[in-house]
Amino acid sequence: EHKIILYENPNFTGKKMEIIDDDVPSFHAHGYQEKVSSVRVQSGTWVGYQYPGYRGLQYLLEKGDYKDSSDFGAPHPQVQSVRR
């Protein structure tokens, strides 16, 4: 199983989107239009992308907690697509 939770604010606060065993080419299409400032990967390895359609900067997200976007190497809290 692959499970990831994306949070609007640092330290796992604010609006969140939970994804289980699915690739998401556009967070906006899924109704999530917030920034991504923290991430909790509960299982599996994911790649987050700066822009929709798996474009832009890529961020490797392995199991663990990323309490701020800088923890996974993002210069800005901008992640708009993700895949396993």
Rank of each mutant, 00 (worst) to 15 (best):
E1G: 08
E1C: 15
E1V: 02
E1T: 08
H2M: 08
H2P: 05
H2W: 10
K3V: 01
K3I: 02
K3D: 04
K3G: 01
I4R: 00
I4G: 02
I4P: 00
I5S: 08
I5F: 00
I5C: 09
I5A: 09
I5V: 13
L6D: 00
L6T: 05
L6V: 11
L6Y: 04
Y7R: 01
Y7C: 01
E8A: 11
E8F: 02
E8L: 00
E8T: 08
E8H: 04
N9A: 09
N9T: 09
N9C: 04
N9H: 10
P10S: 07
P10M: 04
F12C: 10
F12V: 05
K15D: 03
K15A: 08
K15M: 05
K15V: 05
K15R: 08
K16F: 15
K16Q: 14
M17C: 13
M17P: 03
M17Q: 05
M17H: 14
M17N: 01
M17T: 14
E18S: 09
E18M: 10
I19K: 06
I19T: 08
I19R: 11
I20R: 06
I20Y: 15
I20A: 02
I20V: 10
D21L: 00
D21C: 00
D21R: 00
D21V: 00
D21P: 03
D21Q: 07
D21F: 00
D22G: 09
D22M: 08
D23W: 01
D23A: 06
V24Q: 04
V24N: 03
P25A: 10
P25L: 05
S26Y: 14
S26T: 09
F27T: 09
F27V: 09
F27L: 13
F27E: 05
H28L: 14
H28G: 14
H28D: 08
A29G: 12
H30P: 10
H30K: 14
H30G: 09
H30W: 11
G31I: 15
G31D: 06
G31K: 06
G31C: 04
Y32H: 12
Y32S: 14
Y32P: 11
Q33I: 15
E34N: 07
E34C: 14
K35A: 13
K35G: 13
V36E: 00
V36A: 11
S37Y: 05
S37E: 11
S37G: 14
S37R: 14
S38Q: 02
S38F: 03
V39I: 11
V39K: 03
V39Y: 05
V39T: 03
R40K: 15
R40Y: 14
R40T: 10
R40F: 03
V41R: 00
V41C: 04
Q42E: 14
Q42K: 08
Q42H: 06
Q42W: 04
S43P: 00
S43Q: 09
G44D: 00
G44H: 01
G44N: 05
G44L: 01
T45L: 06
T45S: 10
T45Q: 11
W46F: 04
W46D: 11
V47A: 01
V47N: 01
G48A: 10
G48R: 05
G48T: 04
Y49G: 04
Y49R: 00
Y49Q: 01
Y49H: 11
Q50V: 00
Q50R: 03
Q50H: 07
Q50I: 00
P52S: 10
P52D: 06
P52Q: 05
G53M: 06
G53V: 12
G53D: 10
Y54V: 02
R55I: 03
R55C: 07
R55Y: 05
R55W: 04
L57Y: 12
Q58H: 06
Q58T: 14
Y59M: 14
Y59C: 11
Y59P: 07
Y59W: 08
L60A: 11
L60Y: 06
L60V: 10
E62P: 08
E62N: 07
E62Q: 09
E62L: 07
K63I: 12
K63T: 10
G64T: 00
G64K: 03
G64P: 01
G64D: 08
G64W: 01
D65K: 04
D65M: 06
D65Q: 07
Y66S: 08
Y66R: 08
Y66K: 07
K67E: 11
D68M: 13
S69K: 10
S70D: 07
S70A: 08
S70P: 13
S70L: 12
S70V: 12
D71E: 11
D71G: 12
D71C: 09
G73D: 09
A74V: 09
A74S: 15
A74K: 12
A74D: 05
A74M: 06
H76I: 09
P77F: 14
P77L: 10
P77N: 09
Q78L: 13
Q78M: 06
Q78E: 08
Q78H: 05
V79K: 07
V79Q: 03
V79R: 02
V79A: 01
V79D: 14
R84Y: 01
R84T: 02
R84P: 01
